[in-house]
Design a protein around this nucleic acid. Structure first.
Lengths: 84, 84
DNA sequence: GGCGATTTGTACGTATGTATT
DNA sequence: CAATACATACGTACAAATCGC
């Protein structure tokens, strides 16, 4: 898990990371809150730019919700908790 | 015109640039195609990141259309020309 | 209400890849 | 093939927001 995106793939790194995170979300690995952006960049060995781009994709798919100064959360879990 | 965004403003630089470009578009200054991203960064004295963020805002407002490897265009003009 | 720790947001500049003409 | 232009990727620094104490 958390494999560094392959630069040889025709798929952009930010999409590879997005897919990897989406799988982990579907597998309920994070339960509620995702690790911090900085921590995820270290896990995936990618740049901050790439990681944020990936999370933006996840937001577009409505898989996560991000709150400035707080964190990024699994949307389904937030909904299940009745917080939205 | 093309003033460097003020760092003292509470408005983020990318929004200041977006507003400036929107005004120029409304004033029909570009007619059809916007200057290249690199040229605009020099005009506005901002970073590539800031300028691309600004153009992304304009795309969200449907003021412009961007085509990879070709350029960024005034959407109304493209429409008027019957190209979309 | 302020303080400090944590986290996301913005801004910077550069290099390389991909698409179009 | 060459020139031009947008897209992706990189790493860093500082600002802004949130929360618990």
């Amino acid at each position: 898990m958390s494999a560094t995106p392959s630069p040889d793939s025709p798929v952009p790194a930010y999409l590879q990371v997005a897919e990897a995170l989406a799988s982990r979300i579907e597998a309920d690995e994070f339960e509620f809150q995702l690790p911090s952006e900085r921590k995820l960049t270290r896990e995936y060995g990618c740049s901050y730019d790439t990681l944020r781009h990936a999370i933006k994709v996840l937001r577009g798919r409505e898989l996560v919700i991000t709150r400035h100064g707080y964190g990024t959360f699994v949307k389904a879990a937030v909904r299940a908790a009745g917080l939205i």
